[in-house]
Design a protein around this nucleic acid. Structure first.
Lengths: 130, 130
DNA sequence: ATTTTAAAAGCAACTATGTTGCATTAAAAT
DNA sequence: ATTTTAATGCAACATAGTTGCTTTTAAAAT
């Protein structure tokens, strides 16, 4: 079985996730990393972290891809069925951990994964009425 | 006010949408269009159709972008809050027009748009047990 | 029917995002 | 200290989408 190593670059990426309250794109991470590692390395680190269920991948309505730390605690079957909120003004994406959609599906569909993204204005941008 | 014109390319694109039961990507449309028009033109036609609420844009879990005809009938406020199903096997995306998620949101969020995508196995692929 | 006008198309160039192959480096087990 | 192989760096490539500018053409005005 494959072991995963703790490298300087991976540690740096995890630290960046730790400090951020919102989801981050590859580009945003790269800006913070600077030249500590190659941009390809960041892609590969993100792949690994997603694979190890340490972060999850979020695809926004506009097609932008972001990543956020997982906050679940060792669930056996792991579906990221919580909602994500994408602010049209500040462009930040936040996980709404406790918002779970309920729905009724037609027969004969087997669901393995769910993406539920809401977009609009976040509390911050709603208050500063612009 | 801007008027929208009926061009040969636009007609062709609409015909392709008419024939398809599933959502289509730019590439899939381009393949069917052949050299009837430039690929940039297809992008611009899709933009216009989305703007005119004739098709809607669907961003899949894997980041692929597809388009599908709208089936609503002249609603004033137009939110595409129906679900989309993305099959992991045949990669087809279908609109589940009648599946609408219900959810409870924290205060101070203003929702303008919703993306609810389910992925797994569609009835076709579920039956042919592979 | 002809002229006018601006929407739409064509084309080339560019940007952004993500991937792959391969040689090199380094984490961690021995 | 040596060994093993995961991880990295780098170059090249692939795909998706955008932009500027000229030309074409749908459709309105004459």
């Amino acid at each position: 079985m494959k072991t995963t190593r703790n490298t300087a670059a991976k540690t740096a990426v995890l630290e960046i996730f730790g400090k951020s309250k919102t989801a981050l794109s590859h580009t945003e991470i790269q800006k913070q990393i600077g030249d500590l590692c190659d941009r390809v390395t960041i892609y590969r680190i993100l792949d690994r972290l997603v694979n190890d269920d340490i972060v999850h991948k979020i695809v926004n309505l506009d097609g932008t891809v972001k990543y956020a730390k997982c906050h679940h605690h060792a669930q056996r079957v792991h579906i990221h069925n919580h909602a994500h909120f994408s602010c049209e003004n500040c462009l930040e994406i936040t996980c709404l951990e406790n918002v779970k959609p309920s729905y009724i599906l037609p027969h004969n569909y087997k669901v393995n994964d769910i993406n539920f993204t809401l977009s609009g204005l976040c509390p911050n941008c709603l208050n500063s009425n612009n």
